[in-house]
């Protein structure tokens, strides 16, 4: 069963992946193993496919480095729920197809190590008898996600969702 990895407020891109472990420095194969290397060194070895990351305010502030969420995708992270996201990082998550939900009310109910089931496409998290409903993404994004991602949408239509 997927578990919750709970973090606090202001988890920045250097926390997620320090700049000196970027793929162009340590190689394509090694860089994911440095995810949360400085603040939670056990993470990369212990995270399992489908696990959910839960953060507080301003998740992903800092650098535009897309390889930070790419490291999480490569490790199999199933989604991220936070009180709020920093904008460049949020776009990167979308582009990499990592489900990301702003849900300040839900995060207080989830604890580190909780075993959960979730269907992030339907926006549902279940822990035992408790079910938490997440707000679905806006229309523009749902349109893009139907094709997989904004990249997939552009590849197919040669324009952006909503563009005339």
């Amino acid at each position: 069963m997927p578990r919750v990895w709970k973090f606090g407020d202001s988890v920045n891109t250097d926390d997620i992946l320090p700049g000196r472990y970027a793929p162009f420095m340590v190689g394509e194969d090694a860089f994911p193993t440095y995810a949360f290397h400085l603040i939670r060194p056990e993470f990369a070895a212990q995270v399992r496919k489908g696990d959910l990351l839960v953060g507080g305010r301003n998740w992903g502030l800092g650098s535009s480095r897309e390889y930070a969420p790419m490291a999480l995708r490569r490790l199999g992270v199933g989604g991220i729920v936070a009180a709020s996201f920093a904008r460049i990082h949020y776009r990167n998550l979308l582009n990499l197809g990592i489900p990301a939900f702003e849900a300040p009310d839900v995060i207080t109910e989830l604890h580190d190590g909780d075993e959960i089931e979730f269907d992030l496409n339907a926006g549902l998290i279940t822990r035992g008898a408790h079910t938490f409903q997440l707000t679905p993404p806006p229309e523009f994004l749902r349109e893009a996600l139907k094709e997989g991602s904004i990249l997939d949408y552009y590849r197919k239509h040669q324009k952006f969702p909503g563009e005339r």
Binding site: S64, I88, R91, N95, I150, Y154, F160, P161, G162
Partner: peptide, 18 residues
């Protein structure tokens, strides 16, 4: 404004961004 690799590549390819 700053963007990640995918957005930047899309902007280079299309000459536009959303």
């Amino acid at each position: 404004t700053g963007m990640g690799a995918t957005d930047i590549a899309l902007a280079a390819a299309s000459g536009r961004t959303w």
